[in-house]
Amino acid sequence: MNEKTRQRRSAFDREAGVAIAQALFHERGYDAVSLADLTAAMDINPPSFYAAYGSKAALFERAMLRYAHENSLPLDELLAPDRPPAEAISALLLAAAKQYGRDSILRGCMITEGMRANDQAARQMAENLAHGGIQAIRAYLDEVHPQDAQALADYIAVTLRGLSASACNGMSSKRLMEVAQAAGRFIARELEASESTAAS
């Protein structure tokens, strides 16, 4: 093949590579995705990979940021100050259940599942990103129900993580939503009981 007919390889698209990595990490988890998996999926060699992303952990962080940008729950809308707390929290849990179970392959929350990575650096990155969402929920509860804000925030965090893990384990979207609705009813009863105690 001469110079005129030789096809020049197109430049590597780094953002497209992040999207590829995001799908792999979301489907399999950080620990189960190897460098060989990433370079094969992106059709690049290891030196090019390191030049583009620095490390697997650094790419994981970029992939999680991309995931968060595309999939973050609209907390400002769900936890609107003028919305009754029981309704707002129930809506949050239901929205999470729908999101975690909507795809047959990319299930659960990528960031939540990243917090279970064996790799300490990757796990810390996921925890840092998840912290912002939990803090936003806690700030909302501090405003609307300060007396039980910490316990409620912990309950919501545990429920969200349980929904994500269950989605990853194959629980159907219908069952996930039923669990979210049941948790929402429980929180509504707890808030009502707490308010009754405070008023008496």
Rank of each mutant, 00 (worst) to 15 (best):
A198Y: 07
D154T: 12
L59Q: 11
A97G: 06
T39E: 08
A23H: 15
G108Q: 01
M125S: 12
R107E: 04
T159F: 03
R138T: 09
A96M: 07
G184S: 02
D142Y: 01
L191D: 04
L141D: 10
D103L: 03
D13L: 08
A57R: 06
R107Y: 01
A57D: 01
R62Q: 14
E192Y: 07
L191G: 04
L78T: 07
L141V: 04
V179E: 03
P46L: 07
A139R: 12
R66C: 09
M115A: 09
I134Y: 09
E178K: 01
D142P: 05
A57V: 15
F25W: 06
I105M: 06
F186L: 13
E3D: 09
P74S: 11
L152G: 02
A36S: 15
M42I: 05
P46S: 12
R14A: 14
E192D: 10
G101D: 02
V144D: 13
P84H: 00
I137C: 05
D82Q: 13
G132D: 14
A96P: 03
P47C: 06
Y155P: 00
D76Q: 11
C168P: 00
E87L: 02
R6Q: 14
T39R: 07
E178V: 02
Q7R: 15
G108A: 03
E113H: 04
G114P: 00
I20L: 10
H69A: 14
L176K: 05
R28E: 10
A63P: 01
H69P: 00
A19V: 13
A52G: 06
A153R: 03
R123D: 03
D43K: 11
S196Q: 13
L141G: 07
E143A: 15
A167C: 04
P81T: 15
Q99C: 03
Q135D: 15
P47H: 02
P46W: 05
I111K: 03
T197D: 12
R9T: 13
A51M: 12
V158F: 10
A86G: 09
Y53M: 10
D119E: 10
D103Q: 05
Q135H: 09
M125T: 06
Y155L: 09
Y53D: 02
Q135R: 15
S55V: 00
A80Y: 07
M64G: 01
Y100F: 14
E127V: 12
E15D: 13
I187N: 01
A23Q: 15
E15T: 13
Q135V: 11
P74Y: 07
S72P: 07
D142F: 03
A198Q: 14
P84Y: 02
